[in-house]
Design a protein around this nucleic acid. Structure first.
Lengths: 215, 215
DNA sequence: TCGCTTCCGCTACAAGTTCTAACTCTTCCT
DNA sequence: AGGAAGAGTTAGAACTTGTAGCGGAAGCGA
C-alpha cells in the first residue's frame, strides 16, 4: 500500500478541526478583540460542547499562541513575497500598511498591547527575525552609498547583537529601527482609532513619514 | 451652622471609597494589565464583598472609564506643568517618556490596543484636546520662522478641523502629528517589550527621533 | 472479519467572573 | 425622635476556563 503520506486519517481530522477552530477564533478576534476570545463560544459555534476543544488546544493561551504564530507567519510570507517580486523599501512599507488595515486586530495581536500573562514562545521570535531580515535587506539597498554616521548608527554599531548575522552596516540598522517605529507609530494610532474625529487622511501622514526616510 | 462645604459626610465617604477602589485598580492594572482587572478581587482586597462595589461603579466599564479619565488627566496636567515651567518641545517629549515609563500599563491603557466594546466618553476627548494644545503650542514655538511647505502641511491646511481653534500654522500641525506618532512608535514598542532581547538602548532611539525633528 | 486500543465528544463539576435582587442595618436629616 | 436614604450583606443567574470520568465510534493489526 502506498504509505507516501505519513498522516493517518485521525491526524488529518485533527489538523482540520484545529484549523476550523482557528478560523472561528479569527472571526471572533476581528469583531471583539483578542481579550474577548471565548473557547466556549467557538465550540458552540462549531456545534460541539465547550470541553471538547480541550482535546485540540491545551488551554486558551495555546490557542492564542497559535494565532500569534499564524499572524507572524502571514506577515513574514507577505513581505517575503513582495520582496521577491522586486518591491523596494517603500513598496514593503505599503505592503505592511495594507496587511495591517486588512485585519486590524491581527496587527494589534502581534504589535499591540501584550496579553497580560502571556509571553511569546521562541519560534515566534524566529519568524520575527525573518521579517526583520527582509526589511533589513531592503534598508541596506535603500541606503545611499556614503551615508553619514548618525549618533544612533554609532550606538547600534556597538549593540548589534540582535542583527549579528546580518551584514547590513550600522546605518542600515538605524534606518530599519527608525522605519519600524515610525510606521508602527502611525499604524497603531490609526488602528486604535486615535485619528477618528480628526479629518485628515492617515495615509498622507504615512506617506510623509516614508518620504522623510527615503530621500 | 457653617455650611461652607457643600459636600455631605456621605458624599465625602463616597468619593473616598471610590478613590481607594481606583487606587487598588491601578495596582492590579500595573501588575496584570487592564483586561485582567477584577472587581471581585478589588472588593476582597478592601475587606468587602463583591457586589458592594456596584454602589460606587455601575459596572466594570465605568471603572475603566474613570481610570482612563484619570490617566488622561494626569498626562495633561504633567505636560501643562512642565510647559508652565518653561519646558520646550524636547523637554515635553522627555516628560512624556518619563510619564510613560513610570507606569507602562497606564500609558497603554490610553494609547494602546483599545478595549473591545469600550469607547471613550466625550470628556476624555476634551482632555485629549488639552494635551494636543499644550504640544501644539510648543510645536508652534519650536518651528523655524520660515518653515518650507510640506505635502503633509498642505494637506493639513485643508483638514485642520481637529485644531480649528488653535492658531498654529499648518506646518506646526504637521510637526505635532509627526512628533506624536514617532514618539508613540518608539514608546509603545518599548513598553510592549518588542525591544527586549535586542541589546540597544531605546532611549538612544527616542533621542534620535527627537533630534531628527528639532534641527 | 474480529478484537483491541486509542481517541473523540459528552455530561458533570469546580472555581472563577460580572452583575441583579432583595434584605438588614446604620446613618443622616428634618 | 421618626422617616428616608444609602451601605453592605447573602443568594443566585448567566457566564467563563479548565478537569474528571464516561460512553461510543473509529482506526489498526492479526
Amino acid at each position: 500500500m502506498a504509505k507516501s503520506d505519513p498522516t493517518t486519517p485521525r491526524e488529518r481530522y485533527r489538523t482540520q478541526v484545529r484549523a476550523e477552530v482557528m478560523e472561528r477564533a479569527w472571526e471572533q478576534i476581528a469583531t471583539a478583540g483578542a481579550s474577548a476570545l471565548s473557547l466556549n463560544a467557538i465550540a458552540k459555534h462549531m456545534g460541539m460542547s465547550g470541553p471538547a476543544l480541550y482535546r485540540y488546544f491545551a488551554n486558551r493561551d495555546e490557542l492564542i499562541t497559535e494565532l500569534v504564530r499564524e499572524a507572524y507567519r502571514s506577515l513574514a510570507d507577505t513581505l517575503a513575497a513582495a520582496a521577491a517580486d522586486g518591491a523596494d523599501l517603500a513598496g514593503l512599507a505599503h505592503v505592511l500598511r495594507t496587511w495591517a488595515l486588512t485585519d486590524p486586530q491581527r496587527y494589534l495581536l502581534v504589535y499591540g498591547t501584550p496579553i497580560p500573562g502571556y509571553q511569546a514562545p521562541e519560534d515566534t521570535t524566529a519568524i520575527s527575525q525573518e521579517i526583520a531580515t527582509t526589511l533589513l535587506d531592503a534598508c541596506a539597498a535603500a541606503l545611499p552609498p556614503a551615508a553619514p554616521a548618525s549618533p544612533l548608527g554609532t550606538h547600534l554599531a556597538q549593540h548589534r547583537a540582535w542583527a549579528a548575522d546580518h551584514p547590513a552596516p550600522p546605518e542600515a540598522l538605524a534606518l530599519f529601527l527608525t522605519l519600524w517605529t515610525r510606521l508602527h507609530g502611525v499604524l497603531s494610532l490609526e488602528l486604535a482609532g486615535h485619528f477618528t474625529g480628526m479629518q485628515f487622511d492617515p495615509e498622507t501622514l504615512f506617506d510623509a513619514e516614508l518620504a522623510a526616510l527615503l530621500p
